[in-house]
């Protein structure tokens, strides 16, 4: 299996936060969803990949190349889409193109204009006046115009209405239909990932909590609810994010243990949102 991205024991410390031994890999041709609470380290990881932040230790390989030594070749082949406009807002689309095209060997002007037309972006308006959805589409148009083989998206859907989000998913699934392309997609909107992601990496407090296929994690956990009195202690100890309310308790549990549960306890499948909530509760307990 060819890996488009391999992160190995990435460590990066700031005063109030650190990434600890973050490791995960993305096979070529697939989409990886990157989830975690705000402050769990997703953006720091992405910034380390791009060299915007200087990593303390660890290896990051993209296309089999080292992200520090071979950054020039890597950046020719990747695109990044951020949660907010990363261009000066007083510019117009023609300025953006003229600014950026000389940096990319494979810039395709025709494709850029085709996409601008398709996304219905106004060429003669200052991009600062674009709506959030239009700004995202502009960044996507740039991302798709230099034959990038890997697109990294850092919370591109924050603040987008459902229509724009759906349009983005359309664009991404079209992009991935070419098996040479891969996507790393960090987001809070887990519903999108539950649909299109092939792999998922969950970050919690600067560490990788899970990395593997989406199918596996979607099947792995259940949320259990019931009366505390009915719950055996060993199961309570194995649970994640246990909390007792007046009406009963809630917790998350690995599906395998479900067979040991007494009948009175109800359970249902845990989705990504549930997983994030319960691991956050568990972290809060351990502080």
């Amino acid at each position: 299996m060819e890996y488009i991205m391999k992160i190995d024991n990435l460590c990066k410390s700031y005063k109030a936060f650190s990434l600890k031994n973050v490791s995960f890999s993305l096979p070529k041709g697939y989409i990886m969803g990157f989830v975690g609470q705000n402050g769990s380290g997703k953006t720091t990881t992405i910034r380390s990949m791009l060299g915007i932040a200087n990593k303390d230790s660890g290896n990051i390989e993209l296309f089999g190349l080292d992200n520090v030594k071979d950054y020039r070749e890597i950046k020719q082949r990747i695109s990044v889409v951020f949660d907010s406009l990363c261009y000066p807002p007083h510019l117009k689309i023609k300025h953006i193109e003229s600014m950026l095209k000389s940096f990319y060997d494979k810039w395709d002007s025709e494709e850029f204009h085709r996409l601008i037309k398709k996304f219905k972006l106004h060429e003669n308006v200052k991009i600062g006046k674009f709506s959030k959805g239009m700004r995202m589409k502009l960044m996507i148009a740039v991302a798709l115009s230099h034959k990038a083989e890997l697109i990294i998206l850092d919370e591109p859907t924050s603040g987008l209405d459902p229509v724009a989000r759906d349009e983005l998913l359309d664009i991404l699934t079209e992009y991935i239909s070419d098996e040479n392309n891969s996507i790393l997609f960090s987001t809070h909107i887990t519903a999108d990932l539950e649909r299109i992601a092939d792999y998922v990496t969950v970050l919690n407090d600067g560490e990788v909590w899970y990395t593997g296929t989406k199918d596996e994690i979607m099947d792995k956990y259940v949320v259990i609810k019931g009366d505390e009195a009915d719950l055996p202690d060993e199961i309570m100890n194995k649970s994640i994010g246990y909390h007792n309310y007046r009406n009963g308790f809630e917790a998350m549990l690995e599906r395998e243990i479900v067979s040991d549960l007494p009948e009175e306890i109800e359970y249902e499948k845990a989705n990504l949102d549930d997983i994030l909530i319960y691991i956050a509760k568990e972290s809060a307990k351990n502080e």
């Binding site: 998913l169 699934t173 299109i196 092939d198 792999y199 199918d215």
Partner: peptide
Amino acid sequence: RQLAKELKISVIT
């Protein structure tokens, strides 16, 4: 991959 794109779901699925 075409099917994944049309149905907007994951390729692994």
